[in-house]
């Protein structure tokens, strides 16, 4: 139980740091400097604020699902295995 919870907290910390960096970091705080870089018609900071952060959010949740399903299995906390 202790190690399960600790690992969970570590996952949360790492994922939330990424969550913070792509939105509050790239999309807001560092936007102006990132805006000097361009990808096609997009300024990079603007792209993170209106597109990129959202894509990363989706990936983060699916990464967490994957990590936790493995962790649950390792500790025998998974319920039915029929999916």
């Amino acid at each position: 139980m202790k190690s399960y919870w600790k690992t969970n907290l570590r996952y949360l910390l790492i994922l939330l740091i990424i969550w913070f960096l792509v939105s509050f970091g790239a999309g807001i705080l560092f936007r102006e400097s990132l805006d000097t870089i361009r990808i096609g018609g997009f300024k990079l900071g603007f792209w993170f604020a209106q597109q990129g952060s959202i894509y990363v959010f989706v990936i983060l949740i699916f990464a967490y699902i994957k990590l936790m399903n493995t962790l649950d299995k390792k500790h025998g906390y998974n319920e039915d295995t029929n999916d």
């Binding site: 994922l15 939330l16 969550w19 939105s23 999309g27 807001i28 603007f46 604020a49 209106q50 952060s53 959202i54 959010f57 983060l60 949740i61």
Partner: peptide
């Protein structure tokens, strides 16, 4: 952008 990031980031 506040709405785009705010209303999706909450799901994380």
């Amino acid at each position: 952008s506040v709405y785009l990031m705010g209303w999706t980031g909450g799901y994380v």
